[in-house]
């Protein structure tokens, strides 16, 4: 890799780190200032809404299967429903994910076997 390409990698890496880090410094200072002024330190309302909707957006984007076939979409729908169902029963983190992946894999495998 040429020297200028290394510089580009390092600038991209530093910029990405700063985008993750500087907003934390800003928010911590804001919370500390509100706290010292005797007020209730709280996040701005818009930021509290943006967090969960970002996760929802990640879910939506990740639902698109790489294969793009009908079977892959069916497997995604069935796997998603099973994940939700197992979460409803167990209220845990690991089992719903494992169950969803297994069911998704079974539906995909059936496609390979049938075709």
């Amino acid at each position: 890799m040429a020297g200028e390409l290394w510089v580009a990698v390092m600038v991209a890496a530093a910029g990405t780190l700063l985008m993750r880090l500087l907003p934390l410094v800003w928010m911590q200072r804001r919370l500390a200032r509100e706290d010292s002024q005797g007020g209730t330190a709280a996040m701005p309302r818009w930021l509290g809404v943006l967090g969960p909707v970002m996760i929802a957006a990640m879910l939506g984007a990740s639902l698109v299967p790489a294969a793009g076939t009908l079977n892959a979409w069916v497997a995604t729908a069935v796997g998603g429903c099973v994940t939700l169902l197992v979460w409803w029963k167990t209220k845990s983190l690991g089992w719903p994910v494992v169950s969803g992946v297994v069911v998704f894999g079974v539906v995909r495998f059936l496609n390979f076997v049938v075709i």
Partner: peptide
């Protein structure tokens, strides 16, 4: 090839679990 196709479903499954209580 199938493993490569199946394992990424762990991410949407995880997001479902993280989002459901909200």
């Amino acid at each position: 090839p199938l493993l490569n196709d199946v394992m990424p479903f762990a991410l949407p499954a995880l997001f479902v679990v993280l989002l459901a209580p909200r």
